[in-house]
Amino acid sequence: MAKAVTLKELSKKELLFAPGHRLCAGCGAPIVVKMVLLASDYHLVAANATGCLEVSSCISDYTAWKIPWIHNAFENAAATLSGVETMYRSLKKQGKIDKEIKFIAFGGDGGTYDIGFQSLSGAMERGHDMLYICYDNGAYMNTGIQRSSATPFGADTTTRPAGSVVPGKTEQRKNLTKIMAAHNIPYVAQASPSHWADLVRKVRKALEITGPKFMNIVTPCNRGWRSRTDDAITLSRLAVDTCYWPLYEIENGVTKITFRPREKKPIADFLKTQGRFKHLFKPENEVLIGKIQESIDREWEKLQKEEACFAS
């Protein structure tokens, strides 16, 4: 079990994701990446799917990455890292490497839920010793806010815009965290940058476990969410407090909710902060907000039951 780390200790560690990257002001992704890298006490090697984080962090001949980093294509961060990790095992077995290295992949929701899903599923099933982190901002933000299978129901995107006939996305999000848990891998978790201690603890725990691990981290995008640039932490906190993004972990099949909001806020509190849901507040669409609330309530109930099932 990894030792807990204090904020003071974290503040003294070297930032492995350097300033000067070209992500948007107020983007959640670099906050998540910094927290993840700070959490580790190990030598790290990272892979990155094509996306906002990748195009903004390594524009030749500059790089924001102070650790070895590889970008291959959009849909194959997991497969690429599985190759890196396998070479590491091979060279270690041959005595050509002696250091202990941990491997982390970063992908957005497009590169993880959609186009990279097969590659991720394959790498997890094969049991590679790696942590895959999805920074989920709920759409293809790099190409300009197109709908993904992680886009929440009702959200306005550029490929499923809210119009006079179509009220934004008409389908529910894919529950990727649960799908990854169904791979029966040793560790799966959801985290949020608003709850940094929880996020850091989860990364530290994941890195202690040998085998494939998956973490899904909610990552506000003010361009796509149509929100204020200084609201990334506030919005990710609201995502947690409304149970839109419950914080939990599934360790060796056992579900544990790691943060329970004292008072579960209505989903409208989360929706009204973002322009992508603006149309839902028109009188004719309000029924949709009820539908979203119902689905969140149902999922939250289910999660609590899953946890209770193991507690008893």
């Binding site: 990748e54 195009v55 390594c58 524009i59 030749s60 070895p68 980093w69 970008h71 291959n72």
Partner: peptide, 8 residues
Amino acid sequence: PVSYGPLI
């Protein structure tokens, strides 16, 4: 440490 696969 090297970065592979930059944007150019």
